[in-house]
Each structure stands twice: as C-alpha cells, then as structure tokens.
C-alpha cells in the first residue's frame, strides 16, 4: 500500500464526514434548541435530492438544481413544522418518534407517487467532472473536492452564525433556557420555525450534492438518517462542534475500516476468510465506534448534559 493511496482514502473519509456533518448539523440544532427527535430529517434529504434532480433535468442546470434543493427542503421543513412538528415540542420523545416515523412513510410514498418507482437522474456539472491532480500523484475527483470545500465553508458559516449574530445568541439562549428567551420578548415560535427550516435546508443540500454521485431514489434518506444520529450521539447532542468532530470521525472510521481491515486480516489469515471477516467487521465498525465512545463518555464527546 502506498502513501498516496492512503492519503486519497483519508480525503474520501473527510468527504464522507463533511457530508454527514451537513445532515447532522440540522438534526443536532433541532434537538438542542427544541428538544425534538426528528426521524423525518432523512426525508428532507430525499426531498432535496428529488427537487434538484427534477429542476436540473428541466432547466439543464445543476446549479439551479442545488438552489431548488435548498428551497424545496426549507419549504417542506416550514410546512411540516407549522402543521405537525410544532404540536410535538411539549410532548414526550416517544410521541415525537412515532409522529416523525409516520412522516417518513408519508414522504417516501408521496415521492413515489409523484416521481414513480424508478431512480431519477442527477449528474455532476461538466465543470466539476473529472479529476484534480494533487501532490504525491494523487488523482482526486473535482466534485468530491467541491463537497469538502462547501462543507467546510458551511461549517465555518454555522459557527460564526451561532457565535457572532443575534440569531445565534437566541439559538444558544434557547438551548440553555427556554423560558428566559421567551421572557426576553423573542418570538419563540418564529425562532423555532427558522431553526427547523435551516436544518432542513442543509439536509436538502446534502441530499442534492450526494444524489449527483450516488442515486436519487425513494428510501435514500433512511441509511443516512441512522448515520447522522450516530454522528450527533458520538459528538454530544446539541453541540455543533460535536457534530463536526463526530462526522469526521465516523467518515474516517468507515472509509479507512473498509479499506484497511481486509488487508489487515490478510497478514495472518488466508485471503478468502480475511476478506470475509474484514468485510463483516468493517460494516460494523462505526457502531463499534459509537458503542465505545458512549461507554467511555456516556453523553458523547462534547455533550455536557445527558438528556
């Protein structure tokens, strides 16, 4: 194994992690501020991807598709928040789980109803197709590079939004003390709608960006949803920083595990059983990571309060 192959895999892990961060940021914000477990977050990811595919094939422009994904997911988020989610904030976590589970069924079938049972087409734009030559002879996909850059920009944007703006002050206040923020005269229901829409838009954007290199199909959101939950739990629920660290950790563990474990077992096992054991173990890797983190730190890496 060469150094450049290893570095390329690190980049792949980073790209996967950054994508997971976009998904988990909204999830962790919504939980931190409103105390809501939203299983339907994966559906917003799917809606973003479908909107991007539909608009991109209609207008021929990938970039308009990206804009559409942000808007469609945000609009869907606002509607869902006002019609349903809003009634769940004061409820038990279990009611939230049931209602948002029902939303998954509803959204998935609605997409199938509208777009049919077959996957949709969404491709990367011409300008980003092909590879980039990096030092050490690494050929890396331009599009994946863009995902890394966009992800980092959004992470920076989110941090400054939360630490420097008035909206951020309110969000942080909402996380620590909900009564106080209402007493300050902040229109709390507007704030909630806004936070929910922001999280939804990020999920939709992630769906569109990933849809271009994977597939746009019904049910695409569920595996990602599980991973996003893994991420926010590892990072500590409610913490944006935790979501970022957790996402990168999960991305690297999964990618490097898939790549290194089979070769590792080949050192002392015959190739076919090494492939068997290595592949089986690598599919369990992130769950092992999560269990280990939680046994070591029961409320995640950056979680201060075990809710």
């Amino acid at each position: 194994m060469s150094i450049s192959l290893f570095l390329e895999q690190v980049l792949n892990g980073l790209q996967f992690g950054v994508m997971l961060f976009l998904m988990s940021a909204g999830l962790t914000l919504v939980f931190g501020v409103m105390g809501l477990i939203n299983l339907a977050h994966g559906s917003l990811y799917m809606i973003g991807a479908f909107a991007a595919a539909a608009i991109a094939s209609w207008t021929g422009s990938f970039w308009l598709g990206l804009v559409a994904s942000l808007m469609a997911a945000a609009i869907a988020g606002v509607i869902v928040e006002i019609v349903i989610i809003r009634r769940l904030y004061k409820r038990d976590h279990l009611d939230q789980v049931l209602a948002t589970f029902a939303l998954i069924l509803l959204f998935s079938e609605a997409m199938r109803w509208i777009f049919g049972a077959f996957p949709l087409f969404l491709d990367v734009p011409e300008i980003l197709s092909g590879t980039l030559s990096l030092p050490l002879g690494i050929e890396y996909s331009k599009y994946r590079m863009m995902i890394i850059v966009v992800g980092i920009l959004i992470a920076v944007g989110l941090f400054s939004l939360i630490s420097k703006t008035r909206l951020g002050v309110r969000i942080r206040a909402g996380e620590s003390d909900r009564e106080m923020i209402a007493a300050l005269g902040v229109d709390i229901s507007k704030l909630y709608t806004l936070v929910f829409a922001l999280g939804a838009a990020l999920a939709g954007l992630a769906g569109a960006m990933v849809g271009a290199i994977q597939s746009v199909e019904v049910g695409m959101g569920e595996p990602v949803l599980i991973l996003a939950f893994v991420v926010i739990v590892i990072g500590g629920i409610g913490s944006i920083k935790g979501a970022l660290v957790g996402a990168i950790l999960v991305g690297l563990t999964d990618t490097l595990g898939r790549f290194l474990l089979p070769s590792f077992f080949k050192i002392f096992l015959n190739p076919s059983s090494a492939t068997d054991i290595g592949s089986a173990l690598s599919s369990m890797m992130i769950y092992i990571l999560m269990a280990a983190v939680l046994i070591w730190k029961p409320s995640g890496l950056f979680g201060n309060n075990a809710k």
Partner: peptide
Amino acid sequence: LRTSGVYFIMITLAF
C-alpha cells in the same frame, strides 16, 4: 445502562 435518554436509544441501536 450507563447512558440515558437519547444516548440510550442510540447505543441500543448500535448493538
């Protein structure tokens, strides 16, 4: 059982 709340939900899922 060292964890609770949402952390418990997710760690049981992990296993």
